[in-house]
Amino acid sequence: VTLFVALYDYEAITEDDLSFHKGEKFQILNSSEGDWWEARSLTTGETGYIPSNYVAPVD
């Protein structure tokens, strides 16, 4: 499982989006939707859509 880490803070715009803070880690559930990925936060356990350009793979 490839994990991703937030590079910036993000505040949800719609109820389907997931708010997060810089440094938060995610498991990507679906990355086939283009620039918005469905993800689960490993910090909160919540799922929602995140902007793919706000995250990077964890080394």
Rank of each mutant, 00 (worst) to 15 (best):
W36Q: 07
L18P: 01
I13D: 09
T2M: 14
Y49E: 03
A6T: 03
K25S: 06
L18W: 03
L7R: 04
Y10L: 03
W36A: 05
S19V: 03
T43W: 12
L42Y: 07
W37I: 06
I50E: 00
G34D: 14
D17S: 14
D9Y: 04
E11V: 15
S31A: 15
G23K: 02
W37V: 05
L42A: 05
S19M: 03
F4H: 06
T14E: 12
I50Y: 01
P51C: 06
I50H: 00
T14G: 15
V55N: 01
V1A: 14
A56C: 07
A56Y: 09
Y8F: 10
K22I: 09
K22C: 06
W36G: 03
L42R: 03
V58C: 08
D16E: 12
T14L: 14
G23Y: 05
S52Q: 07
L29Y: 06
F4P: 00
E46P: 00
P51H: 09
D35N: 09
I50V: 09
P57F: 06
A12N: 06
K25W: 13
I13K: 15
V58Q: 08
V55R: 00
G34H: 13
A39R: 00
E33K: 15
R40Y: 11
W36L: 09
A39Y: 02
I50A: 01
S32I: 12
T44E: 02
D17L: 15
T14Q: 13
L7A: 02
G23P: 00
G23D: 06
T47C: 09
E33T: 12
A12Y: 01
F26N: 00
S32W: 11
E46Q: 14
S19R: 04
L42C: 08
K25E: 08
K22P: 03
Q27E: 14
E38W: 13
H21I: 10
P57M: 10
N30I: 06
D9P: 06
S19W: 03
N53H: 12
D35F: 14
D17W: 15
L29W: 06
R40T: 15
F20V: 04
E11K: 10
P51T: 02
D9V: 03
D9I: 02
E33G: 13
D59R: 08
G48T: 01
K25F: 14
D35I: 11
T47Y: 09
S41M: 06
A12Q: 06
L7E: 03
N53M: 10
A6E: 00
A12P: 05
T14F: 14
T14H: 15
P51L: 08
E15H: 12
L18S: 02
V5M: 09
V5S: 04
S52Y: 08
E33F: 11
V5E: 09
K22F: 05
S52I: 06
S19A: 06
V55Y: 01
S31W: 10
T47L: 07
T44F: 02
T14C: 10
Y49V: 07
V58I: 13
I13N: 11
T43L: 15
L3H: 10
T14A: 14
A6Q: 00
T2N: 13
N30H: 09
L3P: 05
T2F: 09
N30A: 08
D35S: 10
G23H: 05
V1K: 09
S52V: 10
Y10M: 04
K22M: 10
Q27Y: 15
S19D: 04
T44N: 06
H21S: 11
A56K: 11
I13T: 15
D59L: 11
F4W: 14
A56R: 11
V55E: 00
T2Q: 13
D59E: 13
S19G: 06
L18N: 01
V5G: 03
R40W: 08
L42Q: 08
N30D: 11
R40M: 13
F4Q: 03
N53G: 13
P51M: 08
E33D: 14
S19E: 04
W37L: 08
I28F: 03
T2S: 12
Y54A: 13
D16A: 14
Y8E: 09
S32Q: 12
H21C: 08
D9G: 05
L3S: 05
D17H: 15
E33H: 14
G23W: 05
I13W: 08
P51I: 04
F4T: 03
